[in-house]
Each structure stands twice: as structure tokens, then as C-alpha cells.
Amino acid sequence: MHGPVSAAWLLVALCAATGAYCLLRMRSGVEEQRLSAGGEALMGFGMAVMAVPTAVFTPPRWAWPLYAAVFGAAALRTLWAVRAAPRHLHHLVGASAMVYMALAMAVAPPGPHHAHGGIGVPLLTGVLLAYFAGYVLLAGARLVPAAGSASGGGSTAAAGIRAGAAGWGDRPELARACRLSMGIGMVTMLLTM
């Protein structure tokens, strides 16, 4: 990915931290958390590696098809999960977007700056940008607490934590915040292609 070096390092840090938290979520006692956390950790670390500034490290040409194969396998696994639970569709779109970006980098001419053949933003990039921008807005709105939950005796999530029912790795709002972070990262990466 190409863009300002400081923004690239911030994206690397955000994606790596998200991937690390998702690895910790894989230790959850909740099976659904464990299943989605593995794919999200792969996405987080994959995005972090892909976002490293080219001035620091330029992957060899064979790395991009390898990225595409890894995320293609993740997309196929997720496609299988979507058959049983359509809520995994977002993970399928994310893995497919990573395959697309890896393939775009594989066919791009070498050099620090290049475009998609000089024709502007390709249609698929625009569709993915629109999807992830919408996802970021929706995920951000879901993180805003409801007006009634902040007053009174506290929220049910806080009550569950006080009772010891949910560990910090099982908190759904943290999982949503991770997905929001990765959505923001995906928008950033698509913009810099």
C-alpha cells in the first residue's frame, strides 16, 4: 500500500493491535467468539503486514500471490461458514477484499508509486470502498451507547462484569470495536491503492 509513511505506521499499529486482541479472544469460553476471532486475527495481522511502508520493506514479487492464496483459503473457509450462518458474510467480503488487494499488488508495476493503469479508481475498488465506508459508519453507530443504558443502575454489560460472568475477552463491544478498527484500516488501504 502506498501513502504517507506516518499514516502507514499508524495503520500497522492499529491492525497489529487488533490482531493481537483477536488472538486473545480465541481463548474465550464462548465458541462463537473463538470461531470469529481466528479469522479476525488473520485479517488484522495480514493488514498490518500489507500496510508496512514500502520505504522500509518491499515484499518480493512472489509474496503477493502467497497473500492471495492465504486469504483465498480464508475466504473459502468463510464461504462454508456463511452457508450455516449468514452473519459471517462480512468476513467473506473482508477476505475477498484482501485477495483483491494482493492480486492488484502482484500485477502492479514495480516502483514506489503506481496507479491502476491510469484509468482512475477501478469499479471493484469503488464498490469495496463504499461497502467498508458504510460498514464503518454502521459499526461506529452501534458502539454509541443507548440513552437509557447510561443512567440508572448501570449497564447490563457492567453488571455482568461485576458478577464475573464475562471476561474482558468476551465483551461484545470490544469485538465490535476491533471490527470497526479493521473496517477503518480496510478503507484506508483501499484509498491508498
Rank of each mutant, 00 (worst) to 15 (best):
R176P: 03
A141T: 04
L128I: 03
L92F: 10
G72Y: 03
T54V: 14
G72Q: 04
A69Y: 06
W168K: 08
W64Y: 13
T58S: 07
W64C: 03
G120N: 04
D170S: 13
R87M: 12
L89W: 15
S36T: 15
A175E: 03
T192A: 13
G117C: 07
T192M: 15
A68M: 04
F57N: 01
A106S: 10
L103G: 05
A97E: 02
R34C: 07
T54N: 09
L10M: 12
S181P: 04
L35D: 05
A157T: 11
G183C: 01
R25D: 02
L124Y: 04
M182E: 13
S28T: 13
P122H: 04
F132R: 02
A63M: 10
A104D: 03
V12M: 06
P60D: 00
Y131I: 02
P145M: 04
A63D: 06
V52S: 05
G39P: 02
T78V: 14
S28V: 06
L89M: 15
L42M: 13
A7F: 08
G118W: 03
L191N: 03
L14T: 04
G3E: 02
G44D: 01
G44N: 08
F57R: 01
I184S: 00
G152H: 05
A73V: 08
M186W: 00
P112D: 15
G39Q: 04
M193T: 10
C178L: 12
F132V: 06
R171A: 10
P172W: 08
S151A: 11
A146V: 06
P86M: 07
M182F: 09
R77H: 14
G3P: 04
G169A: 09
V52D: 06
A85Y: 15
S181Y: 03
R142Q: 14
G167W: 02
L11S: 09
C178F: 02
L191W: 08
L138T: 14
V99C: 08
E32M: 11
P60Q: 00
P65V: 01
M105F: 09
V127Q: 06
V70I: 08
E32W: 12
S6E: 10
S36E: 11
G111W: 07
E173C: 13
V82H: 12
L10C: 14
A104H: 13
P65Q: 13
G126H: 00
S155Y: 01
P4G: 03
G39K: 00
V70L: 13
L190N: 01
A130D: 12
L128D: 00
T156Q: 14
G29T: 13
L124D: 06
R61C: 05
S28I: 08
V5Q: 00
A85V: 11
P109H: 08
G29D: 14
G118K: 10
G167M: 04
G3N: 10
G29V: 05
L129R: 10
